[in-house]
Write a protein that binds this DNA or RNA. Sequence first.
DNA 1: ATCGTCTGTTACAGGAATGGTTACATATGA
DNA 2: TCATATGTAACCATTCCTGTAACAGACGAT
Lengths: 141, 141
Amino acid sequence: MNTRFAVATHILTFLQSQEGSPASSELIASSVNTNPTLIRRLLSQLAKAGLTTAQMGSGGGALLARPGTSITLLDVHRAIDEGHVIFPLHQQPNPQCPVGRNINKVLHGRIAAVEQAMERELARTTIADLATDISAINSAA
Amino acid sequence: MNTRFAVATHILTFLQSQEGSPASSELIASSVNTNPTLIRRLLSQLAKAGLTTAQMGSGGGALLARPGTSITLLDVHRAIDEGHVIFPLHQQPNPQCPVGRNINKVLHGRIAAVEQAMERELARTTIADLATDISAINSAA
DNA sequence: ATCGTCTGTTACAGGAATGGTTACATATGA
DNA sequence: TCATATGTAACCATTCCTGTAACAGACGAT
């Protein structure tokens, strides 16, 4: 089970709720309930994608690189699952067979439409949305 | 890389193009370019989902259990990736943390919308559509 | 009735991905 | 200078996927 997308989203939502003060990988790890190295690995990918920055040294930690209102779940998906295809095609079907020769060509178009629908929906939610939902739950309780 | 969805779709499209004559796992395997056991494993799942049937014994093989016009890619996805969540949540975030306590509740709703969008799109393509596209390419060539 | 064919299923091995752990060089604030 | 924290690498256990081999059971052909 690959939970990196969920954990990365958790990290970003956590940073959003910190309102600008840096969070150490150990603090984040305690919220996610995992170990700091895994958090740093994901933060490294998020930083490469331009979603977070890091402040090294004492009192340092991770920060959002831009407002949570401008970071969507699609951004997270692209940063974390880069190159991870949801519905991969199989390699080298038999070119001698009328079906095998063309199946990938035909399937590719249909799958592309599916992934586009998925991405459109991912793009509709921002990190700020999630943080807002959470704080609404917490202030209601 | 998990290509089971693509291979299962290939199998069903192959059966559709057979127009009712049974296909052995070995014949299908040669079209997919893999081994018969993998084909039989997938056929077993497709049969459990009611998409194919099997005719045992000499001259036997796999058959579509219902018209290809009524089998969608969503049916294939459900038969093959049953229980395989696209965006799984992470287990047991810290309940002491305001974010950790609620992140999964909030994320779940957003992810459900994404998967529904994906499923709607998968449901729009049938096995018969794929077979039609392929025969169009072959007769054009 | 026997034989060959084909399915359905199991077992096992190799390879890849995931996640947990440890370690360490580097950067930075105090 | 020192404690803190990042960034990254190495290693291990676990799990999933795929290929391979094996075998009992079903069924058509002869």
